[in-house]
């Protein structure tokens, strides 16, 4: 579903760009500069551990955190960006260092990190993500799972250059 959404968004952007380019003749339109940066969510930074290591997988895995990182304005995918992920899972509390791990985005600005199953804590099954890097303003996200039985969770970052 995520893939479809991303593709559709790209298709729309591409279509819009083509139409605009056709009308203006040459230059990529300034209208694409409208992609707003993602604001930090309430409580997103709770139990954040600055500089958590990049890992292959958090714990024994079984659950997938996925997402994209793009640049505000033109929406260009950002490769090699560091995203930290943590949650209350079947293997530990949010505060435990073992519950934290970081990963990097690929050439398409996409990331996915396997982690233990997220379980409801503090009233909601939710995850935490942080963009941590130098070129853009820090953003903390706190997506909530539609159902505690979900085995994936998705979050998109649109970053504002510093």
């Amino acid at each position: 579903m995520t893939e479809v959404f991303t593709t559709r968004r790209r298709l729309l952007a591409a279509t819009g760009a083509t139409v605009a380019a056709g009308m203006s003749g040459l230059i990529l339109p300034a209208r694409a500069a409208g992609l707003a940066p993602t604001p930090t969510m309430r409580g997103g930074a709770n139990n954040y551990l600055p500089g958590a290591p990049i890992v292959e997988r958090i714990g024994a895995g079984g659950f997938w955190m996925t997402g994209t990182v793009r640049r505000a304005g033109d929406g260009a995918p950002l490769a090699g960006q560091r995203v930290q992920i943590w949650a209350h899972t079947t293997e530990g509390h949010e505060r435990d260092p073992e519950s934290h791990g970081a990963t990097l985005t690929d050439a398409n600005g996409e990331f996915r990190l396997e982690m233990p199953q997220i379980v409801p804590a503090f009233g909601q099954a939710h995850g935490h993500l942080a963009y941590e890097g130098d070129g853009f303003e820090t953003v903390f996200l706190r997506p909530v799972m539609a159902s505690p039985n979900d085995t994936t969770l998705h979050a998109d970052f649109v970053l504002k250059p510093v």
């Binding site: 969510m41 709770n46 949010e94 909601q124």
Partner: peptide, 21 residues
């Protein structure tokens, strides 16, 4: 709850929590 996750309880007490309950 404070011992379990201090920032979540601080958010709750200050009415800045993301969870309405």
């Amino acid at each position: 709850l404070w011992i379990t996750s201090p920032p979540d309880v601080v958010d709750a007490l200050l009415f800045t929590s993301p969870t309405p309950f």
